[in-house]
């Protein structure tokens, strides 16, 4: 390869400058500011053509909003974890509302994709990204965990396996305690795991 000295120097300089990045302590400060804010209500149409509203969903328990699009690879990578949360907590009043933000160009492909992956969570369509403006953010994947007090309990931007685990912990913290038998079983399992 013949790359000019100037180009190579520039590219390497940027690399060198960025080498300090791993040492920078980022703990998603950008989303911390959102926690505790009121979650605005909205109504969108799901894949079955029915209207779903946030505040109505909150009547049965906490709600997770997960914003995604077919072109966003980290979003697609995060969806199996979102489906697991739905499966694990749905019987305890927890609702997962995923918000698809693909433009009308890809609308027809969303339901086939969701069905082919066997996802069971609710998918709401927002082709003009009205919720991103309502919640005032621009990048995805983004999740909001909303408590029954209609306040944002947790927010997360981006995807990594660490964030997936952290989100699971935050959902579990917000859920009302499980039935006594289930609790006993969980504790026993935990002790067994420790041994």
């Amino acid at each position: 390869m013949h790359i000019g000295k100037k180009t190579l120097t520039l590219a390497l300089l940027i690399m060198a400058a960025s080498a300090i990045a791993p040492g920078m302590a980022f703990a998603q400060p950008q989303v911390a500011a959102e926690i505790g804010r009121d979650a605005p209500d909205f109504t969108l149409v799901n894949l079955a053509g029915e209207e779903v509203s946030l505040y109505e969903a909150l009547e049965s328990g906490p709600v997770l909003l997960d914003f995604w699009a077919l072109w966003c690879k980290p979003c697609l990578r995060a969806l199996p974890g979102t489906n697991k949360l739905h499966t694990e907590f749905k019987d305890r009043g927890f609702t997962v509302l995923t918000i698809n933000t693909d433009s009308p160009r890809s609308t027809a492909k969303v339901k086939p994709y969701v069905k082919s992956k066997g996802y069971e969570f609710e998918v709401l369509m927002d082709p003009n990204r009205s919720l991103q403006r309502l919640y005032r953010f621009s990048q995805i994947p983004k999740v909001y965990l909303i408590g029954q007090d209609r306040k944002i309990a947790y927010a997360q931007l981006g995807y990594s396996t660490e964030l997936e685990q952290r989100l699971h912990g935050e959902v579990a913290k917000l859920m009302p305690a499980a039935a006594p038998e289930a609790e006993t079983k969980t504790d026993a399992d935990h002790e067994e795991g420790m041994n």
Binding site: M1, H2, I3, G4, T7, L8, L10, A11, L12, L13, I14, M15, A17, S18, A21, P29, Q30, V31, A33, E34, R136, F137, S138, Q139, K142, L157, G158
Partner: peptide, 26 residues
């Protein structure tokens, strides 16, 4: 003809509404 291109880019999310990008190369 032949040509080579090399580009390095660093993206930093400052907060939920702002991001900063530095790119260098060709």
């Amino acid at each position: 003809q032949q040509d080579d291109f090399l580009m390095t880019q660093v993206d930093y999310r400052i907060n939920q509404n702002h991001s900063f990008t530095v790119a260098g190369g060709k």
